[in-house]
Amino acid sequence: MQIFVKTLTGKTITLEVEPSDTIENVKAKIQDKEGIPPDQQRSIFAGKQLEDGRTLSDYNIQKESTLHLVLR
């Protein structure tokens, strides 16, 4: 499925993911596309910070959902 990741600069990245993917996985995909190390990424969805060990389905993130990426 496709999800979108919006950065603070307003750029939107499209990722191909599975509901079973962990947040860690997703951060690795963002690193592949953007070169941002996962330890600098904070992902926010529906106002909640997403934890690395959880999966997209844990957070009820579905296709075409938009995550927000904040850098630390």
Rank of each mutant, 00 (worst) to 15 (best):
N60Q: 09
R54Y: 12
I23H: 01
E51N: 05
L8C: 15
E16A: 08
L56H: 02
G35A: 05
Y59G: 02
L71F: 08
F45T: 05
V26M: 06
R54C: 11
L67K: 00
A28P: 00
K63P: 15
Q31N: 11
G47W: 06
T66I: 13
P38D: 08
Q41G: 06
G47S: 05
E34A: 13
A46I: 07
E51I: 09
A28Y: 11
F45I: 09
K33A: 12
V5E: 02
K11D: 08
T66D: 02
L8I: 12
D32W: 09
I13M: 04
Q49I: 15
G47R: 01
P19M: 09
K29L: 10
Q41R: 06
L15D: 00
G53E: 09
Q62M: 10
L8F: 11
M1G: 02
D58Q: 06
D52W: 05
I13R: 00
I61N: 01
N25Q: 14
D21W: 12
Q31L: 12
V5T: 00
Q41V: 15
E64N: 15
L50N: 01
E64K: 08
E24G: 12
S57R: 12
I44F: 15
K27C: 08
A28Q: 13
E18G: 06
G47C: 09
L69G: 02
G35D: 04
T7I: 14
K33N: 07
Q49L: 15
D32T: 11
E16S: 09
I3S: 00
K48N: 10
S65L: 04
I44N: 05
S57H: 08
D39Q: 11
K48F: 12
I61L: 03
E34C: 15
V70F: 10
T12C: 13
F4L: 04
I61P: 02
K6D: 04
T7P: 02
S43V: 15
K27V: 08
L71H: 09
K48H: 12
E18N: 12
Q31T: 10
K6P: 03
K27D: 01
G10T: 02
E64F: 14
Q49E: 15
E34R: 04
Q62K: 11
D39E: 13
N25H: 11
T14S: 09
V5C: 03
L67H: 02
Q49T: 14
A28I: 13
S43T: 15
I36Q: 07
T66S: 04
Q41C: 11
T66Q: 05
T66F: 07
E18T: 13
I23K: 00
I61A: 02
Q49G: 06
R72M: 14
D52G: 06
P37D: 10
K63Y: 06
D32H: 10
G35F: 05
Y59D: 00
L15V: 07
H68Y: 15
D32A: 13
E16F: 13
T7G: 06
Q49Y: 15
G53N: 13
E64V: 02
I23Y: 03
K29W: 04
A46G: 10
T14P: 06
P38L: 15
I13T: 02
I3W: 01
F4Y: 13
G47L: 09
I13A: 02
A46N: 15
K27E: 03
Q41F: 15
I23A: 01
S65V: 06
G47Y: 05
L67P: 01
G10I: 02
I3Y: 01
F45M: 06
L67M: 06
E34Y: 13
R72T: 13
R42Y: 15
Q40G: 10
V70N: 05
L56M: 04
T9P: 03
I44Q: 05
K48V: 14
M1F: 15
I23V: 09
P38I: 15
E51H: 07
P37H: 11
E18F: 14
E34Q: 07
Q49K: 10
K29Q: 07
L56Q: 01
R42E: 13
E18W: 12
T12S: 05
F4A: 03
G53V: 07
I44D: 05
S43H: 15
H68R: 07
K27Y: 10
F4V: 05
V5A: 02
Q62W: 06
I3K: 01
L67C: 01
A46V: 06
S20C: 07
T55R: 09
A28M: 14
E64M: 11
I13F: 13
R54S: 06
I13K: 00
I30H: 01
R72L: 14
G53A: 10
G47H: 07
S20P: 01
D32G: 08
K63H: 15
G35L: 05
D58S: 13
D52S: 07
S57I: 07
E16V: 12
P37S: 10
L56E: 01
T12A: 03
P19F: 06
E51G: 03
E16I: 13
S43R: 05
E16D: 11
I61D: 02
D21G: 01
I44T: 07
L71P: 11
D52Y: 04
G53Q: 11
S20H: 11
P37L: 08
D21Y: 07
V5N: 02
D32C: 08
S65Y: 06
D58V: 01
K11N: 09
R54K: 13
I36W: 14
